[in-house]
């Protein structure tokens, strides 16, 4: 128990520190790298809770795909972030004030953290006990039964996202040579090959 406690505080502290660095780092590439650190630590927290599946997905999807994609985009676009930051100081006073008020408000909420008895009754165990069934199976069960609606709807959202990406970016450009395998396969010999008699010594 002590070990998990220590691990939790380490993960949590690093996570928060890295999150701060994400938004304060001067170099955008550094920001993305800090983001990757965040993801790793969050995955660690999930592991501590016994949610290995979510932890691994977080590493694979967010670190392996999303963050790397970010990295590529940031490096390729070559934006001058210094310029973008120029308005920062101008908005700092009022922005800071609003941030402060929001923080106080959220602290007030945390200060009144009481879970009513009715609440804990409603908050039933989300899944079978951890030792009864594996993480993946439990998630799978829940997704395909109780939350099948949300799962399918999410699928539709992804479909729409895909259509959107295609609609907004795909262009059929003129004069681009494309490979058409059916055309290649269906080519007849007569259409492309002509046998000519070449007179000797006459050249072609």
């Amino acid at each position: 128990m002590l070990l998990t406690g220590i691990a939790f505080y380490i993960f949590a502290a690093v996570l928060v520190a890295a999150a701060v660095m994400v938004i304060s780092a001067k170099n955008p590439v550094h920001s993305v790298l800090y983001l990757i650190v965040c993801f790793f630590n969050a995955a660690g927290l999930f592991v501590l809770m016994g949610a290995e599946f979510v932890a691994m997905i977080l590493v694979i999807v967010y670190v392996g795909a999303v963050a790397v994609l970010f990295l590529f985009v940031v490096m390729m676009l070559d934006i001058n972030f210094q310029e973008l930051r120029q308005g920062f100081l101008q908005y700092l006073p009022i922005g800071g004030l609003i941030g402060l008020v929001l923080a106080i408000e959220l602290l007030l909420i945390v200060g009144t953290w009481v879970i009513a008895p009715e609440t804990s009754a409603v908050a039933a165990a989300p899944s079978p006990a951890i030792d009864a069934v594996t993480n993946t199976e439990a998630l799978g069960r829940i997704m395909y039964t109780q939350y099948v609606y949300a799962f399918q709807a999410s699928g539709l959202i992804l479909l729409v996202a895909m259509i959107g990406a295609i609609v907004l970016t795909l262009r059929s450009r003129e004069g681009v040579r494309k490979q058409s395998i059916t055309q290649q396969v269906q080519r007849k010999r007569e259409e492309v090959l002509a046998v000519r008699k070449v007179p000797t010594r006459g050249g072609v």
């Binding site: 609606y149 709807a153 729409v160 959107g164 609609v167």
Partner: peptide
């Protein structure tokens, strides 16, 4: 949850057609 997925399905389509 249902609220959120419905909302996102709608919004994502709208973002695309706005552009």
């Amino acid at each position: 949850i249902a609220l959120y997925v419905g909302l996102e399905l709608q919004s994502l389509s709208l973002y695309v057609i706005a552009a």
